[in-house]
Each structure stands twice: as C-alpha cells, then as structure tokens.
Amino acid sequence: MRARHTVLGMLLVASAAAGACEGLVASDGWIRQPPPGSPHAAGYLVLTNAGKRAITIERVASPDFEAAMLHETRYSDGRAQMRHVHSLELAPGERVEARPGGLHVMLMRPRIALTADALIELDITCAAGAPVAAWLSVRRSPPPSSAPDTED
C-alpha cells in the first residue's frame, strides 16, 4: 500500500494507452477531501491530447466510488449550476483543465476512506476503447497549480 502511494504519487499520470484514448495524458490529478457528512467528492485533473487524432472521452468510473461522471459547474446570474458533461472532445494538442468551480469529476458514495494522500483510481473510457487509468490523490486543499479560477 505504501509503495503504491509513493510511486504513483510521484507519477500521477495515466499511461498513454492504446485504443480510442490513444494519446490521452491525464496529469496533476487530485480530489478535494469531502468534509464529513458529504457523500460526494470532486476530482480535478489536467487532460491533454498528445496524439494526432481527436479523442472523445465518453465515460469515467472509479472502483473506489459507486458512481462517477464528468460534471461542469456553470454560473448564470451568480447562480452555480452543476451539470453532467456527456462527452468531452479533445482535439490533437488540446489541453483541458478540470479545476475547482468548473469542469470536475463528480465522485459519488466512496467505497473507501478518503484520507489525505490516498490515491484514487479513475478509469477514463473513450469512444470504443478500453479504459485508461488515471490516479488522483486526496488532498485537503488544492495544489498550488489548481487554486480556484478567479480570472474569468
């Protein structure tokens, strides 16, 4: 368990795998530790299409949660609305950042204790391909690179 933590903690990158997810690189993955009383968590990561063809992410899942899906928080008139993102397309070279207050992985009903530094597996499925795994580390506060986006 400890080895898994350290080694993967340094990597946190999905293997660029074969199939329709070919070229997909997931990095800087983390999950905001949900406060006690909250059965849902939000995961964040950077998705890059390092390949030469467009990638369409169609599904996410995690063995550590009963359900997972891509969500987006949008603002309309100061109102936050959280909506399911049914698919996410990445053009070759495109980089999409899931970060607090925007795109996120909605993780529902954990099967394990979400202690700080625990690593969570996220399986990303693209159109007609085998899933690729990304790793998200549980954190109490965002890594410096993923502070809430207040620019827009």
């Binding site: 905001r32 059965p39 939000a42 969500h71 928080t73 959280m82 607090p100 207050g101 909605m106 809430p148």
Partner: peptide, 11 residues
Amino acid sequence: THCPDVCPTTL
C-alpha cells in the same frame, strides 16, 4: 452538503 465542487471550495 452534497455539493462537492463550489461549496467546499468557497467555504
């Protein structure tokens, strides 16, 4: 409390 993104971020 079932809000995992905006609410914990703001709080």
